[in-house]
Amino acid sequence: MATKPFTYDISRGFLPGHRACAGCGQAAAVRMVMEIAAPNCVVTNATGCLEVFSTPYPESAWGVPWLHSLFENSASIASGVEAALRKQGRLENTRVLAFGGDGGTVDIGFGALSGMLERGHDILYVCYDNEAYMNTGVQRSGATPYAASTTTSPAGRASFGEDHPKKNLPAICAAHGIPYVATASMAFFADLKRKVRKALGIRGPKYIHVHVPCPPGWGYPEKDTVEIGKLAVETGLFPLVEWEDGEVTRVRKIKRLPVEEYLKPQRRFRHLFRTEEGKAKLAEIQAIADSNIEKYGLAG
């Protein structure tokens, strides 16, 4: 069957051979973003799964200039790169992207991100949200959804898992009044690519929050990454919304499936289906989805 050998040009931006788990939603999402952004871009990266699996010493899966410094300062070093390029007069043809996981964005790098948005740097910040610190073994983060079991919020007799709702970071970024904020999902890849293309066409700070399912962390078969990602959107638990200058301008209408369809296949939510208290928590999660649907007008 194979006729020509496969060749990989570094102008693709992100190349095979990285150590992501099989079925990694984040690796797929990074490929989709880099397909639009490469090759004329500089990428900075917070510590996290992406940094670890793409650059195991002495290798790198990146075909574009790529920097990693610390967990909290992806947005800060991107600001420095942008300022340097601006001073050199090279910002016209070069885009600066800052990548971070949900831990490096929602919790640890939150101040640096807010500063970057406030100062108005011409940077696209992309947060890959797999809803916990997956790299170090599934510890809870600010983006972990309500009632999910993680190693630091374990479900058991005394606990039903994470007891705080997911932090709505895209809305917080939109409240900065920046030109463009969007949420996206790797399962809706054409939508994600459109949003990245749109963001790169705008000068100023931009923020895209990408939902990326994680097979080992969430506990589902690795082939179902796309299916799980679609269910998160179609149930209303992860609304796909765009903000421009702080105002909601576009939402994706959903089928409004019951949240059980999304929660049932995942190990991190299985405790909810075993007890009577779990049923009450399911009703609370359905209420979160319903409030999202009402707030953003997702019912179509």
């Binding site: 990989y8 099989a22 790198s60």
Partner: peptide, 18 residues
């Protein structure tokens, strides 16, 4: 900093994982 060649992960054939 540690500097590596772009795309050097290509030497790591991940095919046998599957």
């Amino acid at each position: 900093a540690v500097v590596t060649r772009p795309g050097s992960s290509l030497r790591n054939k991940t095919g046998p994982w599957g």
